[in-house]
């Protein structure tokens, strides 16, 4: 057994020495943002496990003065560079990608027309639409212990920015799609890093009658999820499967599977099938976004709701429903 491990270790060492793929993630925020960076980080770790690649995460901590330098350093030392999320870096990416035409850049969450850039847009509005459907369906199920009589659901955002507004737009569309009489209260905490304010915002929305609240607020969202537990309402998590954070209170999470995308792109690169300039859309249709169908959801959500959601999901996949977007 020991010998086997030794041999494996040697092999992987040799493989790396022979030119393992060098992958960098240039993150606009930092690891621990409960969003893009964390998801990409999970994906790259998985990729390393599967393909033995070499990787590095460059964290910019939302400091624009670091964007250019980090991108440039990554491009100099690595072959495949994930730019995450791409729209943080539009201008810097244009400059750096021109400087390193042989390298491949991956634009996460959007499309770019630059020649050596692969685009990976996510349709968060579609995912949020499903979250909206789920919320609207749940708020009508007054037999559930945390559901009140009023037909109100809530949305709490962190920093007010267009991409979060896009979540809100999809969510509101989903709610209206299921039941136009359900009211949506939308609030912003104004900050991705103030969980205390997030919690109070959620509390306020809850007290106004909302019994299902969808959050898109980074670490601020942790406070919102905690409010669900403290005050007793249902929350819908965002980006990752957050059900484990407050079991029993988080009915589902709207997932944006950046990790899957990262893994896919790395695989394609290793298989030499990744074309520069190609666009890989992640939406409901290919499971790139969607709700987390997990144990937590099974435990709380009635089967009828589950079935309705599945039907709606089908309609989005085949293009029957076109979801509103704040962007474009």
């Amino acid at each position: 057994m020991k010998r086997l491990i030794l041999v494996l270790a040697l092999l992987s060492f040799v493989a790396m020495g022979l030119g393992a793929l060098k992958v960098a993630i240039v993150a606009g925020d930092a690891i621990g943002d409960r969003g893009f960076t964390d998801m990409a980080y999970i994906g790259i770790q998985e990729a390393q496990k599967q393909f033995g690649i070499e990787y590095k995460v460059f964290e910019c901590n939302v400091d624009p003065s670091k964007y250019f330098d980090s991108l440039r350093a990554a491009a100099m030392n690595y072959d495949l560079i994930f730019v995450d999320p791409g729209y943080f870096f539009d201008k810097e990416l244009a400059e750096v990608s021109a400087m390193f035409p042989s390298k491949t850049f991956v634009y996460i969450d959007g499309t770019s027309s630059l020649p050596n850039v692969v685009s990976v847009p996510f349709k968060q509005n579609e995912g949020a639409f499903l979250a909206g459907c789920l919320a609207a369906l749940l708020t009508n199920k007054t037999e559930l212990c945390k559901i009140n009589a009023e037909k109100i659901v809530g949305f709490v955002g962190g920093f007010d920015m267009p991409v979060i507004r896009d979540y809100q737009a999809g969510f509101e569309h989903g709610v209206k799609y299921v039941d136009p009489s359900v009211k949506v209260i939308a609030r912003y905490a104004g900050d991705h890093y103030d969980p205390a304010l997030g919690k109070e915002t959620a509390y306020s929305v809850f007290k106004e009658g909302a019994d299902v609240i969808f959050q898109a607020a980074g670490p601020t969202g942790l406070g919102i999820l905690e409010a669900a537990r403290d005050y007793g309402f249902y929350a819908i998590g965002v980006d990752t499967d957050q059900g484990y954070l407050q079991p029993g209170f988080i009915v589902s999470s709207m997932m944006k599977k950046v990790d899957v995308a990262v893994l896919d792109i790395v695989r394609m690169q290793i298989e030499n099938s990744l074309e520069k300039g190609s666009v890989h859309v992640y939406g409901i249709a290919n499971g790139g976004v969607g709700l987390a169908y997990n144990q937590f959801m099974m435990d709380t959500v009635p089967a009828s709701v589950y079935i309705e959601i599945s039907e709606i999901q089908e309609k989005i996949s085949n293009g029957e429903i076109v979801v509103d977007s704040y962007l474009d």
């Binding site: 621990g32 900050d191 890093y193 103030d194 969980p195 205390a196 304010l197 997030g198 919690k199 109070e200 670490p219 601020t220 942790l222 406070g223 905690e226």
Partner: peptide, 16 residues
């Protein structure tokens, strides 16, 4: 009070 009552967690610059 902020990190053990208002919320039960720590996040960066949570004093805001």
């Amino acid at each position: 009070q902020l990190s053990l009552y208002n919320v039960r967690m720590f996040s960066r610059d949570m004093t805001g």
